[in-house]
């Protein structure tokens, strides 16, 4: 279909306008959409943004999600990051965190957002920085071994299971001594 304004380029956008119950439809190309004021440049560059902050308007979601902790419910407006000053309302509007500490401040409200954006996931299971992750690496490995152990027991492969159990014990000792070192 060609653009109804310039009759040159193909129409790539479709606008429907309803004024007093009267509906008009136009098919225009991108250039005419800007030139004739159907769409402003600014609006366009923000569209993804709007979409994102739209995603965060999950209040109905949250109501059912947080019936148990009514505390967060009573003062929903005052939540504010004490490191960068971003309030939860601003976060919801802009769709961006202000600093690392925001993640802690808004923590209990983030699961529904992450679930939506990341197909139901809320917990990281990828790379861990070496510097921070000494203990975390060991913990990850232990978790893995434990589920391996469960599977082996289930399959009644007790000899293999005993080996894995010993490996878990070694990891536990390692974690223990690292923690003691860290405390000193």
């Amino acid at each position: 279909m060609e653009c109804q304004e310039c009759h040159e380029r193909p129409a790539s956008l479709h606008f429907t306008q309803v004024v007093n119950g009267h509906k008009t439809e136009v098919y225009v190309c991108e250039k005419c959409a800007y030139d004739k004021g159907y769409m402003s440049q600014e609006q366009d560059s923000l569209s993804l943004h709007n979409l994102l902050s739209g995603l965060f308007n999950f209040d109905s979601f949250q109501l059912s999600d947080s019936k148990s902790h009514s505390a967060s419910h009573r003062e929903p407006q005052t939540l504010k990051c004490d490191h960068c000053g971003l309030t939860y309302d601003e976060f919801k509007r802009v769709g961006k965190f202000g600093c690392a500490n925001c993640y802690k401040t808004f923590d209990e409200r983030l699961n529904p957002i992450f679930r939506r954006v990341h197909s139901g996931n809320t917990i990281h299971s990828g790379k861990v920085p070496k510097r921070k992750g000494g203990q975390l690496h060991v913990q990850r490995e232990m978790e893995q071994k434990r589920s391996e152990l469960q599977a082996l027991i289930h399959q009644e492969e007790f000899e293999e299971a005993a080996k894995v159990r010993d490996q878990i014990r070694t990891l536990e000792r390692q974690l223990d001594s690292e923690q003691r070192e860290g405390d000193q």
């Binding site: 994102l52 965060f56 769709g95 961006k96 965190f97 202000g98 690392a100 993640y103 802690k104 983030l110 957002i113 992450f114 954006v117 990341h118 996931n121 917990i123 990281h124 990828g126 790379k127 861990v128 920085p129 921070k132 975390l136």
Partner: peptide, 16 residues
């Protein structure tokens, strides 16, 4: 970095 959320980013679409 956060143990639970991973690498922390400005936009929630990049976290982890």
């Amino acid at each position: 970095f956060d143990e639970k959320r991973g690498y922390l980013t400005s936009c929630p679409t990049n976290v982890g």
